[in-house]
């Protein structure tokens, strides 16, 4: 009999690379997990997938009333609802992915302790599920663009996948890191909602970067979501040019976060089943 695979199990120490070949072999499981999460997302709800429209839409309405009408927040000369909704689109993808990824190991603990598969699948697959919500919310945005008579620029549409990919890198990178810590310290569960809420204030979702004084601009720029949301707004809603330098910085930071997340995850992976 010809054996295709020889597995060697040894004590693991130090930093470990990513076994891409193995990940590829388990791609079906990755998609099954994505499919499972989508399937169960709106189970036993009365209005089902409508929530994917209602959630960002209602948030947009609330923000428009309080920040747009009452606080008179500047919005680069575009109507505030469009301004805030285009920001929320990416922000929601980022925050939901991050939350799900951070919780992924703990919520799949029973599987983690009983079956082997590349553990990276767990934090990565829940960053795919919110893409469905993103797509639905994007349709709502298109409706709003029609309503306000805006035409997105061609370059805006072209870079959209790139922006989404950068959001994925940031969310999953941070998610893998937090998921690994969460296995041992469940504090993450309680700290994360607070962290995400705070992060919303250092991301130009409800305000434009222009209202932050230039000496503190660098703080915003360290946040990869800043470049993403700014570029998305400039490209889709218009009002100003896309700042490619800022976008490049965001891309580099997002990639760095992703790599750090993946390696930290791989390094701590061996103890997951023991401490979960």
């Amino acid at each position: 009999m010809a054996y295709q695979e020889v597995t060697t199990i040894k004590p693991k120490k130090g930093w470990v690379g990513v076994n891409v070949k193995e990940l590829w072999r388990y791609r079906e499981l990755f998609f099954i997990f994505v499919w499972r999460d989508i399937k169960i997302r709106y189970k036993q709800t009365a209005i089902g997938v409508l929530w994917a429209i209602l959630q960002p839409f209602l948030l947009m309405v609330v923000f428009s009333i309080f920040f747009g009408s009452f606080a008179k927040m500047p919005s680069n000369g575009v109507p505030y609802p469009i301004f805030v909704f285009s920001g929320l689109l990416f922000w929601n993808y980022f925050s939901v992915s991050l939350t799900n990824a951070s919780d992924s190991l703990v919520s799949n603990e029973n599987i983690l302790k009983k079956i082997y598969f590349p553990r990276l699948i767990l934090p990565l697959s829940p960053t795919m599920t919110p893409l469905v919500d993103f797509a639905i919310a994007f349709i709502v945005l298109i409706g709003m663009l029609f309503y306000y008579h805006f035409t997105p620029t061609l370059i805006g549409i072209v870079i959209l996948p790139l922006l989404l990919f950068t959001s994925f890198l940031s969310a999953s990178g941070l998610g893998m890191f937090l998921a690994a810590i969460n296995v041992r310290y469940r504090d993450i569960r309680y700290a994360l909602p607070f962290f995400i809420q705070s992060l919303l204030f250092v991301t130009p979702v409800i305000y434009p970067t222009s209202i932050v004084s230039s000496q503190y601009q660098w703080i915003l720029k360290l946040n990869p979501m800043t470049g993403i949301i700014e570029a998305a707004r400039a490209g889709i809603v218009g009002g100003k040019q896309i700042d490619f330098t800022l976008l490049a910085i965001s891309g580099i930071i997002a990639a760095a976060i992703f790599l750090f997340g993946i390696f930290y995850f791989r390094k701590t992976e061996r103890i997951f089943a023991d401490v979960a």
Binding site: Y3, Q4, E5, V6, T7, T8, I9, K10, P11, K12, R36, K39, I40, K43, Q44, N108, N110, I111, L112, K113, K114, I115, Y116, R270, A273, D274
Partner: peptide
Amino acid sequence: QITYPTAGDVMLRGRVASLLEVGTGFHPEL
């Protein structure tokens, strides 16, 4: 391969399936 040894090693040839529990990962809603 769920957990790793502190010392020593194991060599396995071929595809391994482990049934440490029945119904691992069953989702009640599905």
